[in-house]
Design a protein around this nucleic acid. Structure first.
Lengths: 208, 208
DNA sequence: TTGATAAATGAACAGTGTTCATTATTTTTG
DNA sequence: CAAAAATAATGAACACTGTTCATTTATCAA
């Protein structure tokens, strides 16, 4: 009797999880197309053919759906960056980390936006799992910079400032792109310009 | 008779202008506090003690109020940067331009947000006066970089990429700050870190 | 003072996030 | 298997949103 109950509980839990994934998938697709504010709970409900009220049985409110997506984005980003951990040489690791960071932003502008640009209730974000994930990635980045400092790849030994400076450039690069502030450059050279700029900062970094 | 009528027309025009300024001032204050989406037309109307419908006699819709504010922001930024035009030496001019750009972003995060981060209907923005103003400033920036290139202040001669790279860093610096993505650094060192990073990029730039 | 013109109003429309009593379904019990 | 209990889904309702427009109010010219 108890084990039968367990089986059902498990199935229920699985169904609940499936429902959550259904909601999230629809939400991501809609957010992608129309942005966070352009999408209503009713829109999402309609997309999955449920009533609006049902969504509130799986997520407390709209922002919780947002947070769930933000976590997914952080996971995708981590997976995108993870392979560089295998690169032994810290300098090569750092360059590849940067290259992949920018590539992630270019390929998934909606996810990048979710993670680094969208104005969410940031008072709460620190308590989210997502934040921990992001922090871990940031720590890995700083450790790589530290390893470069230890091997005298830079002139400066101020790891914190070096890491931050590199991050600033990469974030600026991606976010100008994502938020369409490069319209003064013809569309076909934007991507190229971004790549050239990345190469430039890499060369510069040797003189940091 | 005609001149009397003219006087009245002028006064009317002036009053209309005053009303616009009243709306804009209230809107900016509210946007500052609660963000674009957090403020309703009714909120603005209430703040200036008029009915919601009245605002539509002065602005076509909510986004036009946004555009008007964006223009104001562009004007403030231009005035903030203008004094550097007097600096003869292009390198000094460039550094001071960057310093002021960052300072502007830090002092007026709401205006910076309006100009470079907020998702506005960007399809229309190019037709706005604001865009022209921004373009002019960007051109001035690129000309200064060009002047530095001409005087061999950089190793590279790729003016476009150099300008873009510097802009990326400055924008990244400010926007991480403005959108609160520096929470992993203790609050009291954030500003300091930003300044250190700016100094670092200045030193680096000599090796661009 | 009256008639014309302009300005301000606020009710109304279709949308939003969210709640909750009601209904439908599924699971457990007798 | 039928009845009871538990769970899930619903959609109407509430207070909000941007926007429009017939109506009212205020200003101005004759």
């Amino acid at each position: 009797m108890a084990d039968k109950k367990m089986g059902i509980t498990q199935r229920k839990e699985r169904e609940k999880e499936e429902m959550r994934r259904l909601i999230l998938a629809a939400a991501l697709r809609l957010f992608r197309e129309r942005g966070y504010d352009g999408v209503s709970i009713r829109n999402i409900a309609e997309a999955i053919e449920y009533s609006p009220g049902t969504l509130y049985l799986y997520y407390q409110d709209k922002s919780e759906i947002f947070f769930a997506l933000q976590y997914e984005a952080a996971a995708v980003k981590r997976d995108y960056l993870l392979p560089v951990a295998d690169i032994e040489d810290p300098w090569e690791r750092l360059v590849e980390f940067g290259r992949r960071y920018v590539e992630f932003g270019m390929k998934h502008p909606d996810l990048y936006d979710l993670l680094f640009i969208t104005r969410a209730p940031m008072e709460y974000i620190e308590n989210q799992e997502c934040w921990k994930l992001g922090l871990a990635t940031h720590s890995f980045f700083k450790e790589t910079v530290q390893a470069c400092v230890d091997r005298r790849y830079f002139k400066s030994t101020d790891t914190e400032t070096i890491a931050y400076t590199l991050w600033c450039h990469a974030h600026g690069l991606v976010s100008l792109f994502v938020r369409e502030r490069m319209r003064m450059y013809p569309e076909d050279i934007r991507q190229e310009l971004a790549l050239k700029s990345f190469d430039m900062i890499v060369k510069m970094a040797g003189n940091l």
